[in-house]
């Protein structure tokens, strides 16, 4: 397999979507080809950087905003009907919000 042919395989390899034969073929190539090896390392670094990112959540009053935007008069559920975690958050907001 030449370098051009191997490029698409590098992506399948990164996603672990290759069978053992394909895996051997790709690994044999990248062992002997510094160019494709570097390409794989750079792809993996780009992927790792993305996968290391934190979730970026909304502001603290998001749930209330969602309810305020619902059609009709949807009552915001009182804290005792929420999950234990949501109840703690609601109590905390009453005290410090």
């Amino acid at each position: 397999m030449n370098c051009r042919g191997i490029r698409q395989w590098l992506h399948s390899y990164l996603d672990a979507r290759v069978d053992p034969n394909q895996e051997r073929m790709i690994e044999r190539h990248i062992r002997s080809c510094a160019h494709c090896r570097r390409r794989l390392v750079e792809l993996a670094r780009a992927v790792n950087l993305m996968e290391d990112q934190q979730l970026v959540g909304p502001g603290p009053d998001f749930l209330r905003k969602v309810f305020a935007g619902l059609p009709g008069q949807v009552e915001f559920p009182s804290p005792h009907r929420l999950s234990p975690a949501a109840r703690v958050v609601a109590a905390w907001r009453r005290l410090f919000g």
Binding site: G57, F62, L63, V66, P77, L82, S83, A85, A86
Partner: peptide
Amino acid sequence: AELVRRYQDR
């Protein structure tokens, strides 16, 4: 509300 709480960050 529970579904919103579960999914809002994602």
